[in-house]
Amino acid sequence: MPEGSASLQLAVGDRVVYPNQGVCRVSAIDVKEVAGQKLTFVTMRREEDGAVVMVPEGKVLAIGVRKVASAE
């Protein structure tokens, strides 16, 4: 991610809310080559049905992904 860009610090195992998809758990953060460029992807699995969603790390905030609020 370019320096100075806002990002959401995620780790494998974090629970997040993905708008219009529901609650997901981060299952992987991997670098993949797409069209000759190396990009970091956040892979999330929906808790409702296990569907897998992959989002480029740089788009996580723009999409509206946020961490699940704690009970505290």
Results as ranks from 00 to 15, higher is better:
V52I: 13
A6Y: 10
G36E: 02
S5M: 12
V34K: 04
V42W: 03
G36A: 02
C24L: 10
I29C: 00
L39E: 08
E57M: 15
S27T: 15
V52T: 09
S5H: 12
A62L: 10
G13D: 02
K32R: 14
V68W: 06
R66C: 09
A28F: 06
V16G: 01
Q37N: 08
A35Y: 09
G36R: 03
L61I: 14
E47W: 03
M44D: 00
A28E: 06
S70C: 11
N20Q: 09
G64N: 06
Y18L: 13
G4M: 11
S7T: 13
P19G: 14
A35I: 03
T40W: 09
K59Q: 14
A69M: 09
V42R: 00
E33S: 07
R15T: 08
V12M: 02
A28K: 09
E57V: 14
R25Y: 12
P19Q: 07
A35H: 13
V31T: 10
R66H: 14
G64R: 05
L39F: 10
F41Y: 10
E33P: 03
C24G: 01
V55S: 03
R15V: 12
K38H: 07
T43W: 12
R45S: 06
A69P: 11
E57H: 09
Q37W: 05
V42T: 00
D49A: 02
G50A: 03
A62H: 07
Q21L: 15
N20R: 08
Q9P: 09
G13Q: 01
M54W: 06
V31P: 02
K32N: 04
V55C: 04
K59H: 14
C24H: 08
M1F: 11
E48V: 13
V16F: 07
V68Q: 06
V42E: 00
G4T: 13
P19S: 08
L10A: 01
E48D: 09
A6Q: 13
V68T: 06
M1R: 13
G13E: 01
V26I: 14
L10M: 04
Q21G: 15
T43K: 05
K59E: 15
R45M: 11
P2V: 12
V34N: 04
D14T: 03
D49K: 01
V34Q: 05
A35P: 02
S7K: 13
G13Y: 01
Q21Y: 15
P19D: 07
V34W: 08
S70L: 11
G58R: 11
V53W: 15
V42N: 00
M44I: 04
I29T: 01
V16Y: 05
V17K: 04
A69D: 12
M1E: 11
I29A: 01
V34F: 09
C24R: 00
V16L: 08
V53G: 02
L8R: 07
M54H: 08
L10S: 01
K67R: 08
G64C: 09
V52P: 04
L8W: 11
E48N: 09
G4W: 07
A62S: 09
T40Q: 04
Q9D: 09
C24I: 01
E3W: 05
D14F: 02
L61G: 10
V60Q: 03
I29H: 01
V31I: 11
P2M: 12
K67F: 10
Y18T: 05
L61P: 06
V42G: 00
I29M: 04
S70R: 09
R66T: 14
M1Y: 13
V31A: 04
P2W: 07
S7A: 12
V12R: 02
V26A: 01
V16A: 03
A11R: 14
K38T: 09
G50S: 04
P19Y: 08
P19R: 07
M1L: 12
G36Y: 03
G13K: 01
S27H: 08
V55H: 03
A35E: 13
E3D: 12
A62Y: 06
D49H: 02
D14N: 02
L8H: 08
G4C: 05
D14W: 02
K59Y: 14
G36F: 03
E72P: 12
I29V: 06
P56D: 09
A71P: 11
A6F: 11
F41I: 13
V55A: 06
I63H: 11
G4P: 12
K32E: 05
K38F: 13
G64H: 07
V68S: 06
D30F: 15
R45E: 08
A71K: 10
Q9Y: 11
A35Q: 10
E33H: 07
E47V: 06
V23Q: 03
P2C: 03
T43D: 00
S5T: 13
R25I: 14
D49P: 01
V53H: 05
V12S: 02
R46Y: 02
G58A: 14
N20T: 10
G22H: 04
R25E: 07
A6V: 11
M1P: 12
S5F: 12
E48L: 14
K59P: 06
Q21A: 09
E48A: 13
Q37K: 14
V65W: 04
E72Q: 10
C24P: 00
K38C: 02
V31D: 04
V12G: 00
Q21K: 14
Q9S: 10
N20Y: 08
A28C: 00
R46V: 03
C24D: 00
V60N: 03
D30S: 13
S70V: 10
V34H: 06
A28I: 04
A35V: 04
G64F: 08
D49V: 02
L61K: 13
S70A: 12
R66P: 06
A11E: 10
V53P: 01
A11F: 10
A51H: 09
E3L: 10
F41T: 04
V53N: 02
A51T: 09
P56S: 10
G36K: 03
V12P: 04
V31C: 00
D30I: 14
A71M: 11
V60S: 04
N20L: 09
R25L: 11
A71C: 11
V16P: 00
K38E: 06
V31N: 04
L61A: 14
E57F: 15
L39K: 07
E57P: 06
L8P: 07
G22N: 03
V68L: 14
G13I: 02
E72D: 12
V26L: 02
V42L: 08
V31G: 01
A35K: 10
C24T: 00
A71R: 09
M54F: 08
Y18F: 14
V17P: 02
V55L: 14
A69V: 12
A69F: 08
P19F: 07
G58T: 14
L8D: 08
E57T: 07
Y18K: 04
N20K: 09
V65R: 04
P56G: 05
G50F: 04
A51D: 05
E3F: 06
E72T: 11
L61D: 09
V23S: 03
A62V: 09
Q21M: 15
Y18I: 14
S5P: 13
G36Q: 02
V34A: 04
L8S: 08
A69E: 13
E48F: 14
L61W: 09
E47P: 01
E33K: 06
S27G: 03
R25D: 01
V60G: 05
G4V: 13
V65L: 12
V68D: 06
V26H: 00
V52Y: 13
L10P: 01
V68Y: 07
R25C: 00
L61H: 13
V26Y: 01
G4S: 13
V34P: 01
A28R: 11
A11Q: 13
G4D: 10
G58P: 07
D30A: 09
P56E: 15
G64P: 05
K59D: 15
S7D: 10
F41A: 00
V52W: 08
E72L: 10
V23T: 07
S70W: 10
E72W: 08
V12K: 02
G64E: 06
E3Y: 05
L10Q: 00
